[in-house]
Amino acid sequence: MGVAFVAHCLLNQNSKVGDGAHCAGIYAPVIDVLREKGWRIEQMPCPELAFTGLNRFWAVREQLDTAAYRRHCARLATAVADAIAVRVEQGEDVVLIGVQGSPSMGVTITSSDPERGGRPEWPDGSPELVSGEGIFIESLRQELASRGTGFPRVAGETHAIPGHDEAVQRADLEAVLDAPRPEGGRT
């Protein structure tokens, strides 16, 4: 099959923002699919864990989008891109599994609200979900591009998305895993 670089929290829900862990540790709905299909798993670092810590607030992109956080993400992206480069060089198919709606790990959906800040008073269900990538994923894309490495196919865990449906999440993941490799067989 290939190598799936997965968001940290898919193997370790303890890294989630408070009140965000969906289970004790391993997020089986994604990890089980990868293993059933024979994909090797490699865990990426959680960008928010070491930077804003375990007691961080839920946040949107704008709140994390500081020069210091981007430098932190760039450092992590360099380490992950090094690892991806090794696998690509070995001829492996590579996919990236993120967390939809995350300000850092969203792969096609992130969260955004330019007005958010100060004393937390915003209501639950604020429409902060928007198309786009989280800050770390953006950094990783830039790092891979600077090396001339193509960006992997992506899928994401979808708990934060309204109407989350595990069957749909699985189908979307399988579609990405089963998709043909890019032309030339390289990521």
Binding site: H8, L11, N12, Q13, N14, S15, A24, G25, I26, I41, E42, Q43, P45, C46, L49, A50, L76, T78, A79, D82, A83, V86
Partner: peptide, 28 residues
């Protein structure tokens, strides 16, 4: 048993790649 996993770098990574990944593991 309900444990989360912090994965250590694969053994086949070059030393420099593994060292950078291990530094992030340690920080987390």
């Amino acid at each position: 048993t309900g444990w989360g996993v912090l994965q250590l770098p694969a053994e086949d990574y070059p030393a420099g790649v593994a060292q950078r990944l291990l530094a992030e593991v340690a920080e987390q």
